[in-house]
Design a protein around this nucleic acid. Structure first.
Lengths: 341, 341
DNA sequence: CTGAAAGCGCTAACAG
DNA sequence: CTGTTAGCGCTTTCAG
């Protein structure tokens, strides 16, 4: 049972070998394998046959170094614990792959320092562009991105002024829309329950939108409770229990930083025998599948994450083709009335 | 508002410039920036200072082409729709990043053809190794991986004979353990409800384990229902509704291909007023957070996905250091008794 | 401890 | 339509 040696004994087939086998020069083989246009049909076939016969796998590092397009895209996300960014990544990967590009992934864990280091690392692979869902980025990070000379697509929130191009939704407007929905339905007592938002600029923007929306009708949060750690179902469950331990439910509407928190809260209500929305009303964010599959669908806002990923990829690819897409692309959001508020 | 040109006007700082600024040769600068050991403390400092002053970002493509380690790892996953693979990816990325490596990602969508094309594409970037959660791979895929000369870590299931190294759990044993648990608790009527498993070898292996475990006590599934599409909460909810439309609940134990399906089923029971586990018992798989946060925690099997990712990364890195880790690493699983069966 | 020479595998630029 | 020349930015020898 011998393993393949980590350092392959047999060197890989090179373009030169393909060219020799096809009886043409390297550059002709190169063209045949890429352009196909600027080459005689006859030689084209010969080169292709040789490549197939030799099981040729091009070395794109060499290609990119020699001046070809890089076809790698740096993707920096703050987290993978939350299905939100898995959805975005799925949309991204699908469209990039379709165009022959591939994501090199980095996860910042919402840590600005780690994000900066990560970008520097990814940049060293000379990607064709960058897609980033920023943490609370440092000034150094922004400068590095701006000076990279690469197309940069910032995703998720379109409100902050973009370095280059932004794709997403207005987190603030989404928060405001939810506040309007709740006040419109007659709620007058409000609380906010979120994960640790200090480092999560989008959650913070939504909270500000909520506050602004409440202020429109002279309402405000009785309590804003943020718990340490990433958003999760258990955190929402514990959080609501804690909140209700010191505050009467009676007609309270609780806004959550994310659907998974709200689902956890729903579970608490079920276990505690609280009527939703009779005793407490619950409003999530993101429109996750889990929330919509609850016996009572969750009141939420759909954030169209896979679409953000897909549009971000398309926008980046357009930039690489030399086009000039809009600096800011609003993918929008949709209020899901649900049945919990 | 001018954007940075996609093709940067100002060429990037090169090692040669750093070397010149530091008053040493390229190779000395190169060594200083990597080894630090084989260089005089004095020159080391000069080179570092120069690099910092010039804001030097190494070009790893050039480095890898010249014979340096590649430090990119191809990661091929069948899906990102399910939090299972997001968890694995998180574990992978964390450990790889820690060692200065980065994942290039590909998603096969459980399609063998796509998987093969994907691997070929990723191989063209000359990664240092490959981590793959295989779809129902083609023979061509296996040959390509074996002949790549690269360390290959196959993750999730350790039962099939590995090409090189496997990290995961015995899906079959896990299925069997769940069957033993259920029969041990006295259940005698069984049904299986899964997503489309034709292309999902792990789900299939678990189903076979379940069957084997039932056969041990001369029991069998009354019905094996697989629904098209990936596993999801709504699919489980609809699936159980469909199943119970033609089959009396009375003491039926339903095994699901995944926890999200089982959670959906739980929601159906809540909405339909069915007692769990009185009328129907539910058993999931994977031990997802959502299942454990339900008012009644879900009976399931914890599959330790982030650990699989982390161990897979460590194993690959060990191979790259020239070590010889075991061909097959069992990360294990744990039965979660829960309260739904 | 430092350097000179050579070349990784490929492609752009210019010729024919 | 095809080839020649040069070089991408770095690291591996091999010498001092």
């Amino acid at each position: 049972m011998s393993r393949p040696p980590p350092d392959p004994a047999e060197p890989r087939v090179t373009l030169a070998q393909v060219a020799r086998a096809a009886g043409v020069s390297e550059i002709t083989a190169s063209r045949a394998l890429r352009d196909a246009a600027n080459v005689a049909p006859r030689t084209l076939e010969q080169v292709r046959a040789a490549a197939r016969a030799l099981d040729y796998v091009p070395n794109r590092m060499a290609g990119a170094l020699a001046g070809g397009a890089s076809r790698q895209v740096a993707v920096v996300l703050p987290s993978l614990s939350n299905s939100v960014f898995a959805d975005v990544l799925r949309g991204l990967e699908t469209r990039l792959d379709h165009a022959g590009h591939h994501p090199i992934l980095g996860v910042s864990n919402y840590d600005p320092e780690q994000e900066e280091r990560l970008i520097r690392d990814l940049l060293s692979w000379r990607p064709a562009g960058i897609v980033i869902a920023p943490a609370a980025s440092t000034e150094g990070t922004r400068r590095m991105l701006a000076q990279s000379g690469l197309p940069v697509v910032e995703i998720m929130d379109i409100d902050p002024p973009p370095i280059d191009t932004a794709v997403g939704l207005s987190q603030r407007a989404a928060g405001r829309a939810m506040a309007a929905h709740l006040t419109g339905r007659g709620y007058r007592r409000f609380a906010y329950l979120g994960h640790d938002i200090a480092a999560d600029p989008r959650a913070l923007a939504r909270l500000e939108g909520l506050r602004a929306g409440l202020a429109d009708v002279r309402a405000r949060f009785e309590e804003v409770l943020t718990l340490p750690g990433p958003s999760s179902v258990p955190l929402g469950r514990e959080g609501l229990a804690a909140l209700l331990a010191r505050r009467a439910p009676g007609g309270l509407a609780v806004c959550f930083s994310n659907d998974d928190m709200a689902v956890g809260a729903m579970f608490h209500c079920m276990a505690a025998g609280l009527a939703v929305p009779g005793d407490v009303a619950l409003a999530g964010f993101n429109g996750l599948a889990i929330g919509q599959a609850l016996p009572q669908p969750l009141t939420s806002i759909a954030s169209m994450r896979d679409r953000i990923g897909a549009v971000a990829a398309d926008t980046l690819l357009a930039r690489l083709r030399g086009e000039e897409p809009a600096r800011s692309i609003d993918v929008g959001f949709a209020l899901i009335p649900g049945a919990t508020a």
